[in-house]
């Protein structure tokens, strides 16, 4: 004691909860920020709830991609890579219609749009050949591709679906890649909608050690729980900062540590932290009171009364602050 800034027995958890909860009441209910992408990324209260609930799929994911050191300040190279990363599937640049009577697929390429993505009709035909192999005859004229397939209707349908989803270019899941300039460091980076760290790892010129996504679960999956915790911490801080609220990092750190203490990012609340408390009384005091009490009595669960909630319920001194000290008689 005395060596630390916080005294032993201080209720840090409660203080953290209050310090995060009070500014939470001041946050705007529905806010989005645009951050250079056309996607709507929630901030403020909805985003905070999303983070604390540790959702698997956030409303809108973003991935920030930095290039290798030699290209970081090269705007052109950034734009090049951004265009290469953005996912384009066949149905994005073509209109596909089926003709069951003639057993054909008519694919009309939107050449103007395809050109902006750097895709030619030739590329598309090659891709189709690659996917279908020898199972169809391909004829093409200008921007029209005709696919003659001798198969049953059901099979034709299946092939249509397959053709529509042929990836022409880029990394699956990444959309709307834009180059953003970071004024502070003078570097450029690519901000894309969606996430796919697995495939991004293999992408060329990408500095994988700096890749970041606002999907904390994805970070956890690829870089481990500690990186996940850091991402979670960063995201919560960002929400608070954007709202102009100042909360000491230590409170957020404690929250992030609590959420990550079991080796994975867990939500706070009924299905997460609160629902897994060791004490029956503490769980019953939170939500689903009857369920917990009934289950505990069936199983003959014991409560050692170590926590705060349990002791308040039965009216004992809580083992916090001065309540933590006990007297022992000298013999």
């Amino acid at each position: 004691m005395g060596k630390k800034l916080i005294d032993s027995g201080e209720a840090v958890g409660i203080i953290a909860a209050q310090s995060l909860g009070e500014p939470g009441t001041q946050m705007t209910m529905r806010t989005f920020h645009y951050a250079g992408v056309a996607e709507q990324v929630p901030t403020g209260l909805p985003r905070l709830i999303e983070l604390v609930d540790a959702r698997r799929e956030p409303t809108q994911s973003l991935t920030d991609i930095y290039l290798e050191d030699e290209f970081v300040k090269d705007k052109k190279k950034n734009e090049e890579v951004a265009a290469a990363l953005e996912h384009v599937s066949l149905s994005d640049v073509c209109a596909v219609t089926e003709n069951f009577a003639k057993k054909e697929l008519r694919i009309k390429v939107d050449t103007k749009f395809a050109q902006t993505k750097g895709i030619t009709v030739r590329d598309i035909i090659n891709k189709i050949k690659e996917v279908l192999g020898k199972s169809g005859k391909i004829k093409s004229k200008n921007d029209q591709i005709l696919l003659h397939i001798n198969a049953t209707y059901q099979k034709l349908r299946r092939i249509t679906m397959k053709v529509k989803s042929i990836p022409l270019k880029g990394i699956k899941g990444l959309s709307k890649a834009t180059v953003v300039y970071n004024e502070k460091t003078g570097e450029y980076f690519i901000r894309a909608g969606g996430y796919n760290l697995h495939d991004l790892k293999k992408a060329e010129h990408v500095n994988f050690s700096r890749v970041y996504t606002n999907n904390v679960r994805e970070i956890e999956k690829h870089f481990g729980i500690e990186a996940g915790r850091n991402a979670l911490l960063k995201e919560i801080r960002q929400v608070m900062d954007l709202q102009g609220l100042t909360v000491d990092v230590r409170h957020i750190m404690l929250l992030a540590d609590a959420m990550c203490s079991r080796g994975m990012i867990e939500p706070v609340g009924r299905h997460g932290l609160s629902g897994r408390k060791s004490s029956v009384l503490a769980r019953a005091a939170f939500e689903e009171t009857v369920k917990h009490l009934v289950n505990a009595s069936i199983e003959g669960e014991e409560d050692p009364l170590n926590g705060v909630t349990e002791n308040i319920i039965i009216g004992q001194t809580v083992k916090l602050g001065t309540g933590k000290v006990r007297l022992i008689m000298r013999q």
Binding site: K201, F208, S209, F223, G224, E226, A227
Partner: peptide, 13 residues
Amino acid sequence: KEQFSVFDHVLVP
């Protein structure tokens, strides 16, 4: 790329 280790990432302590 082949030599990438998780510890290279900025977020990993």
